[in-house]
Design a protein around this nucleic acid. Structure first.
Lengths: 212, 212, 212, 212
DNA sequence: AGGTAATCGAGACGGTACGTCTTGTCTTAAT
DNA sequence: ATTAAGACAAGACGTACCGTCTCGATTACCT
């Protein structure tokens, strides 16, 4: 997924091979994007998603409101792009065993810091995605992005022979990620190291993983 | 969880044994509750959660805004109660086998009608719950309510000997429900009969279920 | 002309004889009118007509913007009403002679204070009146209001026999007022005691006034 | 008054005799002036003065906004110049008598076409002039321009002996023009042939004109 | 029967964010 | 240096909702 701002109406993606003919007029200020995204991330920490206003973002970024609306369609798109742009790099653990990798990947989620921001954010984005097809697609892409590391872990395991060729990797990811999100966002159930370990062990048994 | 309106501040739940001493003054109009809840459900279908306004509900229900605020604390509580009040009864299937029961319970979720309303609603409620402790608790209760039938299914299976005593029922429910919600709300992955069947089979293997 | 706020849509003037049935709902706050009008007059002095914003009026009056828009249609109507409501009482001089009365009435206009506010205001209102029939009528009424004292002066003169019955009073007023406004607003010509005296003498001669 | 665009700051009017040293760089497009002025006159008819925006003028004229701002200081100056540039030539009637000349000059004003544009325009300019000294001067010049024909009429009358040497020509013009403008812009009183005739006769008597 | 008191529908209230608009300046590449 | 195009910061616009408050009228219980 690209970190580039949402293309707005008429911004034809005519970036065809050849020339990519410069559009006439003053080009968009590249630094404005950065300033806006930085302001969004700042404000998300300070007032949360629902307390974030476009006026505040504009002021904090030293930017006119129109500059924001020229680049994004609304708060949700903006936040999603800010998150995408500012994403911390995911570690792709490599401990040598499938179980070790999965634990290394999921255990950090039990720290409250990690849960903090996401809990308020993801549901808000999902809610908006329900009535905004474009955002829905962007949200899917964002989520899909985060599936990458787990997919890599599983593929390495398959190469090592820990997983059979018949195992549905997508479903396996959902078996791991689904219960965690469900607890975080909806049921409020605990997401602690014990739960993660139990979860991983269940899933390993479900997919018939065999230690090498 | 009670379908009764949220008790508002100071409205002590002093409905203690004795007499339930009638409060002085004109009693609350019972029909207003129904009219309001009906209006909410109507409007949710028409404009969705985020498009729903208290003004519109009041007007549609032929009721003053104050009457709504006297009974509920805000949009989310109101919607949650409306959903609770208007909930269709869940069937608790009893096919004789754990696998049969689970499929009978989850397969209906693959019909688009069932997914329709929830997709926009649950994330919106979860988003609000993130900044409203009271609503969070109500949401948990609402969600927990829906876990009931599955819990009953699992307990019957345990009594039949299909499930060992050591199986964590809560985690089992999350293993089933989590991936479905995750796909519906976040990843946009398919939730169809094939996926449900695969999911149930995986979970049965994970918890070491044995057919009787 | 009434100092009452402009009637807005649907505010049927059904103040028929009988009962003047109270409209349902919370009545409009009478003090808000006063506070808003006072704020407008304050701000007109401080920033002038074109510098006046509805936000500033609302803030100064301690009132929401909607409260202003509920009562007036826009800046011009509001200012016109504020002027009307806050009008200082015109003296109706009575010196015993037509010439004395006219000088007593018009000479104060040469003081710069008197010219201050009007110069920016009247043309702005006239400009808006050109594209707003409702405002045009209100402006005419406002202007007509100010013709009153001169009309009274002329009528007294006629009773005394200083003016013939055939004199067109309206045109006479215009002969006096027109040149003054023309200089103030358009030509920038001087409006000083000498000019006023010359003007009055010319007009007296034009209408064939004879001292008694 | 010149129809040339307002000289902008620093753009010294050094177009002295001698050489008019060509300035470096691309010369200003002469046709732009015409296109802009034409666009302004078009738009004034379509949306009126207050509805006219610089963006619209630029787009209609096929010109960049900067090109307008390089030549004029703002909306009012631009409009004033557009009017000046497009002014129809005033006839300077010469009927042989003062009364005949004045009627010939003023009677055309009673046609609604003549009143159309000016009614919305002049007050708007006057309003702006109240807070813009430069525009005020330009407005005075514009108005003064229109006084020219009347001044010429009066001077010819004086040469013929119809007017005494002691008559204040400026005040006489104001006595004629003032009441007309006052009615057009503020009081909304009638400006028809009867009114004009009455006005002229009154003024002639006021200044003691004698037929030759 | 009269008094007391909380309710009712209606809608105005102060606040605040929205997304649009206009202004006058600035920045491109091209002329 | 000027051009057309259009992005820029600033900030007012008028609308929409929020949750509260204020009306007169209503509806019950309690003297």
């Amino acid at each position: 997924m690209s970190a580039a701002p949402t293309a707005v109406v008429g911004e034809t993606v005519a970036v065809t091979e050849e020339a990519e003919r410069r559009r006439p007029g003053r080009p968009r200020e590249a630094r404005a994007d950065e300033a806006i995204v930085a302001a969004v991330l700042d404000l998300l920490n300070e007032v949360g998603f629902s307390g974030l206003t476009i006026d505040a973002v504009a002021h904090r970024a030293g930017v006119g409101k129109a500059t924001i609306y020229r680049r994004w369609e609304g708060k949700e798109q903006l936040v999603l792009d800010a998150l995408t742009a500012g994403r911390f790099e995911f570690v792709e653990p490599d401990t040598g065993t499938l179980r070790g990798d999965l634990l290394a990947y999921y255990l950090p989620l039990t720290e409250s810091d990690a849960q903090q921001g996401a809990v308020g954010l993801m549901p808000a984005l999902a809610a908006e995605a329900a009535i905004n097809a474009d955002l829905a697609e962007r949200l899917r892409a964002f989520v899909s992005d985060r599936r990458g590391p787990v997919a890599a872990i599983l593929e390495r395991a398959r190469e090592r022979g820990e997983l059979g060729d018949d195992v549905d990797l997508d479903l396996t990811i959902d078996l791991l990620t689904g219960p965690i999100m469900y607890r975080l966002y909806f049921s409020g159930g605990p997401v602690d190291p014990g739960m993660i370990r139990q979860l991983v062990d269940h899933v390993l048994r479900a997919v018939g993983a065999r230690a090498t």
